[in-house]
Simulated scan of single mutants.
Amino acid sequence: MDDEPLKDWAERRDAKIGRLRAVPVVSGDTPGDGPRGAHLRPDAPRVIERWNGYAWEPHAFTANLAETKAILYPTATATATSEPPPAGSKPKPLGSGTGKHRKPPAPR
């Protein structure tokens, strides 16, 4: 078995420090009521946890999925709220070609 040098392992571990994750706050009273896909309960509160190199520690608390995404993906929300294209711009027309996604030419 090939052993990885300790220096390489430490660099990989340190690169993950500061990573964030969201964990939904749900009650565990009913079987099957644990954490699920984020899209299933978008209004459920969530805890944002931060990796410190050894364990996940609480970092923030959000009220819903929209707030959570704003914290976890700040660049995605910035581009989603950017200005729409100018009113005079036209979409690019399809180029010529015979790819699978193209309709065959109509018979004459």
Rank of each mutant, 00 (worst) to 15 (best):
I17C: 11
P45H: 07
D29E: 12
D14H: 12
T30D: 11
T75P: 06
P84A: 01
N64H: 05
P105D: 09
L40E: 11
K7E: 07
S27F: 15
T75F: 13
T79F: 05
A60I: 00
S96M: 02
Y73T: 00
R108G: 05
T62Q: 06
Y54F: 09
S27H: 15
H101P: 00
R19E: 15
Y73K: 06
P93E: 08
P104R: 14
P5I: 00
I48A: 08
K16Y: 13
A22R: 03
P45L: 09
G18T: 13
L6R: 09
P93Y: 05
I71H: 00
V25H: 11
K69S: 07
L40M: 10
T98G: 13
Y54N: 06
G88H: 15
R36E: 04
P35M: 05
G95Q: 09
H101V: 00
G97S: 05
H59M: 12
K16H: 14
D3H: 10
K100G: 07
G34K: 12
K7Q: 14
T98S: 12
D3E: 15
I48H: 05
A55I: 04
K7T: 10
P107C: 02
E11F: 02
E57K: 15
R36L: 08
D29P: 02
A44S: 04
S27N: 15
D8K: 15
P35H: 07
R50C: 12
P45W: 04
D2W: 12
F61Q: 08
P86F: 00
R19W: 13
L20D: 12
A55E: 14
E11P: 00
A55M: 12
G99I: 03
V23P: 00
A63D: 11
N52R: 14
L65V: 00
A10H: 11
D14Q: 15
N64G: 03
S96W: 02
H101R: 10
P31S: 05
G53L: 12
A87W: 01
A66K: 12
P58E: 07
P42M: 01
L40A: 03
K90Q: 07
N52C: 04
H39T: 06
L20G: 09
E49D: 03
D33A: 14
A22T: 00
A70I: 03
P84I: 01
R12Y: 05
P35L: 05
R13T: 09
A80V: 00
E67A: 11
A10M: 02
E57F: 02
P35Q: 05
L6S: 11
G28A: 10
H101D: 09
E4V: 14
L40S: 14
A15C: 13
A63C: 13
R21Q: 11
G88P: 06
L72H: 02
R36W: 00
T77R: 13
E83Y: 02
R12A: 15
H39M: 09
K69W: 03
P24L: 11
S82E: 02
A70C: 04
T98I: 01
Y54G: 07
H101E: 08
A78M: 15
A106F: 10
A55N: 09
A80Y: 07
H39Y: 08
H101Q: 07
R41Q: 11
A55P: 00
A10P: 01
G95T: 05
R108S: 03
P31V: 09
R102Y: 07
S89H: 11
P5Y: 02
K103I: 08
T79Q: 08
P24I: 03
P5A: 06
R102N: 03
L6W: 08
T81H: 06
G95I: 04
